[in-house]
Simulated assay, not measured.
Amino acid sequence: MSILCFAENPGGANGIIALAMQGENTHIIAEGSAVKYIQDHGIILSDGVPDQVSAIVVGASHSHDSGSFEYILRAKEQGIPSFSYVDACVNTEFRFKGHTDDPLHYAPDFLFVTEMATEKSYINLGFDASRIYIVGNPRYDFVVDRVEGLTKQSAPHKTVLFLADPVVPTIGADYKNSGFNTQSAEDVRSFVLLETLFSKLKNHKIIIKLHPRNHADEFAAYKNNATIYQGDGLGIDLAFQVDMVIGTTTSLLAESALVGVPTIAALLTPQERQWLPHILPDNLIVSTDGNHLGRAIEAIMDDGYARHYPSNKEGLCKKAGVKMLDIIKQHCMIEAR
């Protein structure tokens, strides 16, 4: 059996990476930010598209011009099963819409989703419930396995890793009741939170890890007070070595908490909670208030604070890659009959 896989962003690529690591015959095509992301995991991309495969799997994005649509249509033309991995319950109505009015216009035969909330969202859009599989988040399995071979290095100073968002104006009227000071000259979520961090972490080292869509010069104002990081490698390797991770809604927050790193999701409004996974590691601190964030930082940076794994760790790690491959094999056998 051979599987053709396609991804164009890191979120969708996580499902493809999980499949590739199962040792099956996979041909992986990537575009955009998924190219480097997949290669950073040591996976070799295919030079071209094979003529015959048993199934096609794509990582969903919310682009109206997603390259995944071409592969879903290819599967239908060839009469082979198509699958899409949806990494989060965000923008579900745009994942398969394209430039049409139908949110399922380019939908595949089957969906792999990480949690029940995403399943419910697609059922509400009209997708057949019997064709949706809740497999868990394959990224959780990956990071837990990854850190088994890592040891936290000692350092003379405590270090905080801040996970930056793309620098876009996102603060408007909806943020007037925010628990943070949103009256800064530049209405950027990361800048608002960095103001709070610098006031609370004057004697600690701060690393600002840039988002793939960030440019270092956008954070030039902070280079005298922080290390700007836009390097190669996996984010979890960096996060594992620091004393605290702070961000907004990036997936690396849940991953860091899952492997025991003290982690805070700092949200400018309670409504931003919907952008996080609905089921989180229970040691992840969610803060929607600057004062609460300050107290959480002080507690974590205290010398007596110890790392600890979430009590729901086992429930979050579901061997999603194994499940996806088993399901694909089952449907390929059905199609072959």
Rank of each mutant, 00 (worst) to 15 (best):
A7Y: 03
A7S: 12
G12Q: 05
G12T: 01
I16D: 02
I16S: 04
I17F: 00
I17S: 01
A20Y: 02
N25L: 10
H27Q: 07
I29E: 01
I29Y: 00
S33W: 04
A34S: 05
A34H: 01
Y37H: 15
I38C: 05
L45G: 10
G48I: 08
V49T: 15
P50C: 08
D51Y: 06
S54E: 09
S54F: 04
A55F: 03
V57Q: 04
V58F: 01
D65H: 12
S66D: 03
F69Q: 12
E70D: 13
A75D: 03
Q78M: 15
P81I: 06
S84L: 06
A88I: 13
V90K: 06
N91K: 11
F94A: 10
R95K: 15
F96V: 03
G98P: 01
P108Q: 02
K120Y: 05
Y122N: 00
I123R: 11
N124S: 09
G126D: 07
D141M: 01
D141V: 09
V143W: 04
V143A: 04
V144Y: 06
D145T: 06
V147P: 00
T151G: 00
S154D: 12
A155H: 12
T159K: 14
L161E: 00
V167R: 15
P169M: 09
P169G: 08
G172K: 09
G172Y: 09
A173N: 12
D174T: 07
Y175P: 01
K176S: 12
N177K: 10
A185R: 12
E186Y: 12
R189D: 05
L193G: 02
T196R: 14
F198V: 09
K200E: 14
L201V: 14
K202S: 13
K205M: 05
I207T: 05
I208H: 13
D217S: 14
D217Y: 13
F219K: 05
F219R: 11
A221Q: 14
Y229N: 08
G231W: 06
G231R: 02
A239R: 04
F240Q: 00
M244N: 03
I246P: 08
L253W: 12
G260H: 09
P262A: 15
I264C: 10
A266K: 08
Q271H: 13
R273W: 09
R273S: 14
I279P: 07
N283P: 11
I285D: 10
T288D: 14
D289L: 12
R295N: 11
R295L: 12
A296M: 14
E298M: 04
D303A: 15
P310G: 10
P310V: 13
N312Q: 08
G315N: 11
L316I: 11
C317N: 08
I327C: 00
M333A: 13
E335P: 02
R337E: 12
